[in-house]
Design a protein around this nucleic acid. Structure first.
Lengths: 232, 232
DNA sequence: ACAAAAGTGTTGCCCTTACACCCATGA
DNA sequence: TCATGGGTGTAAGGGCAACACTTTTGT
């Protein structure tokens, strides 16, 4: 940036990170919420988050919060910056700029302990309460981003454990998009997408009823050319 | 955000906006640079930007900076948040978090006055100097975003005046992507994309040598389903 | 008349879609 | 052996790339 002299006297701002952490549980897309135990919006549901510590990188703060709230390591989940929200009166305490992040985690990440939050829970995105601050907007933006990125990235695998079947992968798309996909065509598309999935080393099968499915794990790729497929 | 008590005592941070402003001039993709007249990185080229004023919304600050540097109004250009950069030591003066924005403007926006910047110029993106702070990274991210968005949005029109020919529109893609496109197929794709362009009301033609081209203006759409076309 | 750019037609190929069909397992 | 889901085959249709062709202007 360029700018006038002595910036540090001009603004007194707190920088926070907020996390929209999505997972798929019980065949539904869910979002991690915490119930605020402190002053503004006390008792209301909100996104997990916290202030960036002095000397701490923003990305590191997001990673730390993710770990604190879900116990998940960075490499076991997807974490990316979403957008920054800085309307002057978005926080009644004063000027707080929030760098919102989008996280996708596997179901296993479930547990949550209450540190600064009184309580926390996974909530269906289809049935969310009205959240504190501008968190409704952040969630909406995060959802848009997640849905859009499924189209042209391998992000869907972030919702699954390290090995998975193609049916499980397909179910991620179906749940996030709310649309049915043809199993045969889905399989072909995914297998034809270079680097999307590779056969899992270990056991080739596992299972319930019907023919056992082969297990796969994420390939190296993150972006798909051309895009995989579209919802409808 | 949630978090500990009395956040405003915890961090003392300045929030800035930096702008990666792209245009197409002289058949090349160019970026607006300013030469720093003040302390850190004095004399070095950098992105235009400045601090967010107390009580000012971040988006408003970006809009103000864009106007100050190019004279362009918001509705005559594209302006969107890019990402936020907040590494602890990215600014030697202290903790400065920068919310970078991406702007695309038409050639007409050229002029620039030197207010807090000693000097400013349009530089070819293919031949940029090493910039101050982490601005090299911001420019790279902005370029990636711009190139990617041409594929599935109507953003290309932001580089052009209110009315334009399909050849001019095609040339935007060719310059930004560095690839040639078939004029016949390009025309069909664009005209088939609902809401991308509409015939311009006024004069149907204008021009140099060869058959005069019809003029169009931007339709209402911003996102294209399916994506327009890909580079190669 | 010729060059040059705008704009239209056409053809062959590939990818997708839809759905029929076979395979492997649990009960 | 039947039900259930995994996995393969295939034929029809649509979209797209490539390129030939026609139109309209300036010189």
């Amino acid at each position: 940036m360029s700018g006038p002299e002595d910036p540090l006297l001009i603004t007194n701002v707190a920088v926070a990170v907020d996390l929209a952490i999505f997972t798929i549980r019980e065949q539904r897309l869910q979002l991690l919420l915490i119930r605020r135990s402190l002053a503004p919006f006390r008792g209301r549901w909100a996104l997990p988050g916290g202030f960036v510590l002095p000397g701490e990188d923003i990305d590191a703060a997001a990673e730390r919060e993710l770990r604190e709230e879900t116990g998940v390591q960075r490499d076991a989940a997807h974490l990316e910056q979403l957008a920054t929200y800085g309307a002057p009166r978005r926080d009644p305490r004063g000027r707080v700029v929030s760098v919102a992040h989008l996280a996708l985690v596997a179901d296993a990440a479930t547990p949550v302990a209450g540190t600064d939050a009184a309580e926390s829970r996974w909530a269906d995105v289809a049935d969310l309460p009205h959240l504190a601050f501008d968190h409704d907007r952040i969630v909406a933006d995060g959802l848009d981003r997640a849905r859009a990125k499924l189209e042209y990235t391998t992000l869907a695998t972030s919702f699954l454990p390290t090995t998975f079947t193609l049916a499980e992968l397909r179910s991620v798309y179906e749940i996030v998009w709310g649309a049915q996909l043809d199993p045969a065509n889905f399989r072909r598309k995914v297998l034809a997408s270079d680097g999307f999935v590779v056969p899992a080393a270990g056991g080739p099968t596992v299972h319930g009823r019907g023919r056992p499915a082969a297990r796969y794990e994420a390939g190296g790729a993150t972006v798909l050319h051309p895009p995989l497929l579209r919802p409808t």
